[in-house]
Design a protein around this nucleic acid. Structure first.
Lengths: 209, 209
DNA sequence: GTCTATAAGTCGATAGAC
DNA sequence: GTCTATCGACTTATAGAC
């Protein structure tokens, strides 16, 4: 079976690589090719070192993957928290929600290979690695739950929505964009606006509601 | 690295296995464990035969996977088409849309291991297998585009929505439920209603719109 | 901090007996 | 239609030189 695909495996070389260099390369390859197709040999080759050298920086492949998963969540968490907290104190629920959605999509699609690698490979890594990444994930989920609960308490959200369920739906829908979004067809900001429009107003022409 | 996880690998035995038996087992394992963790040896073990015997029914692992991917799409396609076509001729856009959403979710979460396996492993299989599955996927996507375009032409959808973009968003959001939906926490029908409510009405309390 | 060399295991796939 | 046995390639990980 040829699981190598048509993958460009250009090496970069240039000076020392180090722990961070290995992680950067690994995150990019995981985002591009998924977990199963990326071996330590491939990471090493692209990073410009030999496979055995990786074990000077890491104790196992799992350690590399977990580090990338955690960093990816923290990156999108920071982006989202900053976007929300920098809104004016009298900002409307809609404005705050749009800022959070935009921040999540920007981290995922534009800023961080680590965030996109997380979404891409989380369902492919060994269960033990998923479990180890869970606390970091839970923290980000709690941030969303806190925001949504606040908007609901303000009366801005419909009172019959379940916060946990809405969060799962929202983040799931946003993360799914990773599979098809093409920056050549439109900007992340335009995408974020479209998503916010749907969640805020729905897709049907208003007639009775 | 232990990628075997804590997976129950119970065999079933019971009479002849055959091509269909292998496919059923493989689809279930792919859905439960993803692509990378499921070897031909594991499929054979659960099916109650030896690994070499699989090659009497299939020429390669890719052939097994492609068959499962195609069947999965056709299953959800059939479910969705039937649900839409069985609506009354004067059914409202909202009713039709709710029926399509419900059918997609039911196929994915309740009816077919093949459909859920498709969503779960499509991004993990070799590029050649993805390419081979594309025509079947395109056909299902065209079914949604046709439905949405019809609703838009009727004036039921907002006129500024892009059909292709809406379809990507809708299917992406629905497929994402596979990662967290738990039938013990609620029915597929209730889930479908919640999703339809969001897409139809949005999540904000109406005040000015 | 990176190298070479290799151990120990798993994988997809094939050949031939029954 | 299923079995046994095996090949060759690939993987993570380790040991020790430099």
């Amino acid at each position: 079976m040829s699981n190598l695909e048509t993958n460009q495996v250009t090496q970069q070389a240039r000076g020392p690589v180090g722990r961070e260099g290995v992680l950067d390369v690994a995150a990019r390859l995981f985002r591009e090719q998924g977990y199963g197709s990326v071996s330590l040999r491939k990471i090493a080759q692209v990073a410009g070192i030999k496979a055995g050298s990786i074990y000077y920086h890491f104790g196992s492949k799992d350690e590399i993957v977990l580090s990338i998963l955690d960093t990816g969540i923290m990156a999108v968490h920071d982006e989202m928290r900053l976007a929300v907290s920098s809104q004016a104190s009298d900002a409307s629920a809609e404005v705050i929600l749009r800022a959070a959605i935009t921040a999540h999509l920007r981290a995922l699609l534009d800023v961080s290979d680590y965030s996109s690698a997380n979404v891409r490979i989380f369902g492919q890594v060994p269960q033990s690695v998923r479990d180890a990444n869970l606390p970091t994930r839970r923290s980000y989920e709690a941030e969303w739950d806190s925001l949504l609960a606040r908007l609901k308490a303000n009366g801005a959200l419909k009172q019959d929505v379940d916060v946990r369920h809405l969060r799962l739906m929202l983040i799931g829908a946003l993360n799914a964009t990773l599979e098809w979004f093409d920056p050549k067809r439109g900007s992340v900001e335009a995408l974020a606006k479209n998503y916010a429009d749907v969640f805020v107003h729905g897709i049907l022409e208003k007639q009775d509601n």
